[in-house]
């Protein structure tokens, strides 16, 4: 494995054209996130947090600037290559869960596997893996439930199990606790902490200082620019992913 940073962003801008008006959502961001790091992103509403996350998650294209994921230049890739990256190298956890509403927890978790062309496992094996992933987030007894039959915290745990099923390098979480009560939020944070402790790189957007305190450092955005980078006093321990 190369020693390149997990995420390396330079001069990243995103301009939305709304009618005649140009909205500068990101005004030139430089950012470097090491492997195994847990980074929180904070900032007022409209400061560009989600825009940044979507670009890091390969869901959206930057207007300008470069983005290297794990050493690979992503800004020049086509739609198919980006889909493959979303599938295998990134696990995205959304504030609004984004689960398929008519599909069971188990099948929601399996979703990234069926879109992985390298996954040649038989269906039984995949079911077993998805079940294990749900067990790991404490939902072993809720596999057949559809999202409407689950609490918000449980839904978010299904979403995390789904984000992890293809063993991504990076987990991105855009306000993962934003729709949850304190208790459920703490459960989610415990899972993220554990993932990070096992070496997974995590980037998380939050509005709450206590949540951000779980990260190694917090990046403060304002009006599409990095306002400050604040270390949280937690040191990044070397926990190589190979050990997983």
């Amino acid at each position: 494995m190369s020693a390149a940073p997990a995420i390396e962003i330079t001069g990243l801008t995103k301009v939305y054209q709304v009618g005649e008006v140009e909205v500068h959502a990101l005004g030139g961001i430089d950012l470097c996130i090491q492997r195994g790091e847990f980074v929180a992103i904070m900032g007022p509403s409209g400061s560009g947090k989600s825009t940044l996350m979507n670009i890091i998650g390969c869901l959206d294209h930057p207007t300008a600037g470069s983005y290297r994921l794990d050493g690979q230049d992503v800004s020049a890739l086509d739609r198919i290559a980006l889909a493959r990256i979303r599938n295998r190298r990134i696990g995205f956890v959304f504030q609004s869960f984004n689960l398929l509403s008519r599909t069971s927890a188990l099948k929601n978790v399996m979703l990234p596997m069926i879109y992985d062309p390298h996954n040649r496992l038989p269906r039984g094996e995949r079911l077993a893996q998805a079940a294990a992933a749900l067990e790991a987030v404490g939902l072993g007894d809720r596999m057949a439930h559809v999202p409407a039959e689950l609490s918000g915290g449980q839904r978010q745990r299904v979403a995390i199990a789904r984000a992890l099923i293809n063993d991504p390098v990076i987990v991105l979480a855009d306000e993962p606790t934003g729709n949850l009560d304190t208790h459920s939020g703490q459960e989610i944070m415990a899972i993220l902490d554990e993932l990070n402790a096992r070496g997974r790189t995590i980037v998380m957007v939050t509005h709450e200082a206590e949540i951000a305190a779980h990260a190694h450092r917090t990046i403060h955005l304002r009006d599409g620019l990095v306002e400050a980078v604040v270390p949280n006093g937690r040191d990044l321990q070397e926990a190589p992913r190979e050990a997983l």
Partner: peptide
């Protein structure tokens, strides 16, 4: 959108 987010390609 959800399917695309978890890796579905145009062809899928």
């Amino acid at each position: 959108g959800i399917r695309q987010a978890v890796g579905a390609t145009e062809t899928d």
